[in-house]
């Protein structure tokens, strides 16, 4: 499901859930690009465990990237004005996670939609949550 204008958005709608690529290859690539690589915590399960972690992690801001990617697919004309993510618990690499969002407010006058965001693991435990404000064009 995608929306093109603010008129397409329905209060309470859930954006189609998405399972992002949390593979070590993806986390390594991300960590290299943002300058987080080297310690192994995002690149190698063994090195991460040696640091007391349960395994290699998905960088927190990569979770933000998962959420913005999902919003951009849902609203191809949308502009994210604000996104806030709370890192509640580690997101483990090589584990399936589900990214979801729900419409919690619609401001038709200003063309803005507020979304509640979550990233959950296989046990349906929330690892990351947050909100986003997205600007959408008015219906023509």
């Amino acid at each position: 499901m995608t929306v093109q204008t603010i008129a397409d958005v329905v209060f309470g709608d859930e954006i189609t859930p998405w399972q992002p690529d949390t593979s070590l290859q993806a986390t390594r690539s991300f960590a290299e690009a943002v300058g987080y690589s080297g310690s192994g915590r995002f690149e190698d399960h063994g090195k991460a465990r040696a640091q007391g972690l349960p395994g290699a992690l998905v960088p927190g801001i990569m979770g933000m990237g998962f959420l913005t990617s999902m919003i951009h697919r849902w609203a191809p004309q949308g502009k994210i004005k604000f996104i806030d993510t709370v890192f509640r618990a580690p997101v483990l690499a090589d584990h399936d996670h589900t990214v979801t969002a729900v419409v919690t407010d619609i401001d038709e006058e200003n063309g803005e939609v507020v979304l509640d965001l979550t990233i959950q693991n296989e046990q349906e435990e929330t690892r990351v949550f947050g909100t986003a404000t997205v600007h959408l064009p008015a219906a023509s």
């Binding site: 992002p20 986390t27 991300f30 690009a33 990569m62 933000m64 990237g65 998962f66 990617s69």
Partner: peptide, 25 residues
Amino acid sequence: VAKASGETRAEFTDTTDPNFEACAP
């Protein structure tokens, strides 16, 4: 960074796109 996060919009993934801009992460 954008591609590794699953981004698909050209303005964040294609450096030749005229509207290319830095992604939020």
